[in-house]
Structures are given as C-alpha cells and as structure tokens.
Design a binder for these strands. Structure first.
Lengths: 148, 148
DNA sequence: CATTTGTACTTAACATGTTAAGCAAATGCG
DNA sequence: CGCATTTGCTTAACATGTTAAGTACAAATG
C-alpha cells in the first residue's frame, strides 16, 4: 500500500480536487439561479453580507465574503454601476469608505432567497442533514489548522 | 484569534464558503511551492494527470483535472510554450489531439513531489489521518449526488 | 452522396483569483 | 513638528472561471 514512492497519489483522493468538485456540485445550481438575474456568485455573497450586517467598509466585506481586496474593488464598482450598493466616504478616516446595500439590492436578495433555501433543502435531503453537519464540522476544523 | 469568535455562525455553516476556506487552507502552501518553479496550481494538476495516466486527449485531461475546456486550451498552450508537454494529432480522428508530458515535465513533478508529500504529511499529522479520510469520503459522496 | 447532427476543441468576452506595485491618508516616533 | 511606517484601497498584469459562439471534422441520416 505504501509502494507509491515513485507515483503520485490518485487525484480522487486529493483533498484540493475533492474540495473543488464538491464546491462545483453545490455552487452549480446557485450560479444558474443567479445568472438569471445578472449577478455572479461573488456579487451575491457581497450583497448578502451587506444585507445581514448593514453598512460596512471594504476590508470587512472582503473578510466576511471571502474575497481578496483587488477582486472586491472591481466587484464594488460593478455593483455600484448596477445601483445595488452605494458608497460614501468615511466621516473621520478619509482612506475608508462605507458601503451600503440599496433597496434594489435588498429586493434582489428577497427575490432569490426562497430558491436559495430550496437548494439548501435539497442538499439536506439528498445528502442527509447529519452528514452535512459532520462535513461542515470537519471543514471548519480544517480551517483552524496553523502550519508550524 | 478573536476575530473568529465575532464571525456569525452562519458563515461557518455555509457549505460553499466552508469549502472555499478549506480549499484555501490546503492550497495556499502548494501554490507557494509551485510559484517558485513557475507553474500554477492548474498547470500542476494537468501535469500530474498526464504523468499518472500517460498520453491523453484534452477532453479526458479536462475531466480528470477538473478544468473546463476553454481553460484547458489556454493552459495547454502555456505548457507547450514551456516545453512541459507536447501535442500531436490523433492518428485517426483529426479533430482530436494527443497530449504527452515531456521529460522536463516529469522532472518538474519529481522535483516538487517530495515537498508535496511533506505538505500532505503535515495535513495528516495536524488534522489526523482518520478525519482526513472521513472528509474525503464525505466530499466524494457529495460529488455523486444528482439533482432530481 | 448530400445533408444534418454531433463531437472536439478553439476563440471571444467578461468576471474573478492572485501577486505586486502604487497612492493617499493616518499613525507612530524622535 | 517632520518623517518613516502602516493602513486602506486601487491599479496593473497575468492566469483561470464561465458562458456563448465559432470552426473543423466525424458520424448519422436519408
């Protein structure tokens, strides 16, 4: 079993690729839903964060939506162009901005949240709620690892 | 780190984002390693598939390396330019190609496989081999789901 | 054999991922 | 205060993700 010193491990036991495939499985339907209303998966994440947390600065949006700042800069420009968010200067720190979701942005979330919940329900039913929770626990624990 | 404690549980319980974070955790060190030799994570995946399976056509490479064909087209052009692969016309079907890894490509894999194994060993040690296998099983099972 | 349909890429266009560099404002310090 | 450093965001450059359209060839059909 350990005679693989000259050959790399098979890709189906490769964690990076397994994570990629699982993510594609989960995100595929969501992307389809969102493309119908003209927003990407990342734009949707930003809008949801703003809807849940209220006005935020870009750095905090990036952290909460799991995006890097250069990507977020472009996304905020796009969302502003679509009038789904507004940007205002920070009152005391002129380096910062304050980003707020617009009414149209909130409406977009309302219009798609039901379908989003339906997809989540499908996942729970197909995969099993217990396994789903177990998977989330493992993923979250993995995320806490620190390389020594 | 206290920042984690301030995060709402909902982000930790979102499967797409949890998959994203876990993937970043695992891929970060690998990307660092690969950038030192001038190949990307995706190029590395293609080379490994070719090294494992031998000569393949682009469609099968795409399936096995989890890449879409348009991405793969560009990647193969890049890898050919770096002389890490060669492309030959299919003997009977002139629509197809046959892609083969070069000696330089194999050498690149050899040069990095030890470090790759070291990272995998770190993962097994930090996370636990049993949990790792359990996680892989769950991810692979998730990937088999079909939407009804 | 001619036409239609399908296959195997390829190209295009736009969005994001990723790293590095840039810039203005804020902060730390002598 | 004056200046180096840090912070917050932006831009740039290159690679990939994603969808749609295009092209050449093959296979199926009549």
């Amino acid at each position: 079993m350990e005679a693989r010193l000259t050959n790399p491990p098979e890709t189906n036991r490769s964690l990076p690729i397994a994570l990629l495939r699982a993510r594609e499985k989960v995100m595929g339907p969501i992307r389809t839903m969102l493309s119908d209303v003209g927003v990407t998966e990342q734009q949707w994440r930003v809008l949801r964060v703003l809807n849940e947390r209220g006005t935020l600065d870009p750095t905090e949006i990036a952290e909460r939506s799991c995006l890097l700042l250069p990507s977020l800069t472009r996304i905020l420009q796009t969302l502003e162009g679509k009038e789904l968010i507004t940007r205002a200067p920070h009152p005391t720190d002129r380096r910062k901005q304050l980003v707020t979701i617009t009414q149209a942005g909130r409406q977009l979330i309302v219009d798609n949240m039901e379908e989003s919940r339906r997809l989540n329900a499908w996942l729970k039913e197909s995969f099993g709620n217990e396994k789903l929770e177990q998977l989330l626990d493992l993923l979250n624990e993995l995320d806490t690892l620190e390389r020594t």
